[in-house]
Computed example of a mutant assay.
Amino acid sequence: MSTSRWTFLSNHTHVLVCLARDPDATMRDVAEQVGITERAVQRIVGDLETAGYLSRRRAGRRNAYSLRADRPLRHPLEAGTDVRTLLSVLDPGVGPDAD
């Protein structure tokens, strides 16, 4: 029996789901939920921002994130599927309302 721990979804997807559920989540909160370091979350959030999937705004001393749910997924196998559709499968309470 294998002791390796793997999942079907990437950490980028996990971070995206966390921020879709709670746009005001801290990097620490997201890191704990995903099971990665805060630094890894910061790098992933940067990737998602650069690619146009997230935008960041200041909310007092913290950041809040807006999701661009209309953006298409990046891999050719998912061509024609957008973030909203993915989120609606992973978390039905989040997907339809995402912007």
Rank of each mutant, 00 (worst) to 15 (best):
V45A: 05
L67Y: 05
I44D: 01
A40G: 13
E49Y: 10
L54N: 00
D91S: 07
D47T: 07
R21H: 05
R39P: 13
L16G: 01
S2R: 12
T13L: 11
A20I: 06
G93A: 07
I36Q: 05
E49H: 14
M1L: 14
G46F: 04
H14A: 09
T37W: 07
L67D: 00
M1I: 13
R43S: 09
A98R: 09
R21L: 08
G35K: 00
V17P: 08
V41F: 05
S4V: 12
Y65P: 03
D29P: 07
R71Y: 05
V15M: 01
N11L: 07
T37A: 06
R57M: 08
D91K: 06
L67H: 01
S2P: 15
L54T: 03
D70N: 09
P72W: 06
G60W: 04
G93Y: 05
R71M: 07
V45Q: 04
P76K: 06
T81Y: 15
R84I: 05
L19R: 01
T37K: 03
A59R: 08
V34D: 02
D97L: 11
P23K: 03
G80L: 04
L73H: 03
R5V: 13
D24V: 08
I36T: 06
T13Y: 13
T37C: 06
R68A: 10
R5L: 15
R28K: 10
R39W: 07
H75W: 13
R61Y: 10
T13N: 14
V30E: 01
C18Q: 01
T50M: 09
A79L: 13
T7P: 11
G80D: 00
D47S: 10
S10N: 09
A98T: 14
L19V: 02
A98Q: 11
R61K: 10
I36N: 05
T26L: 05
G93R: 05
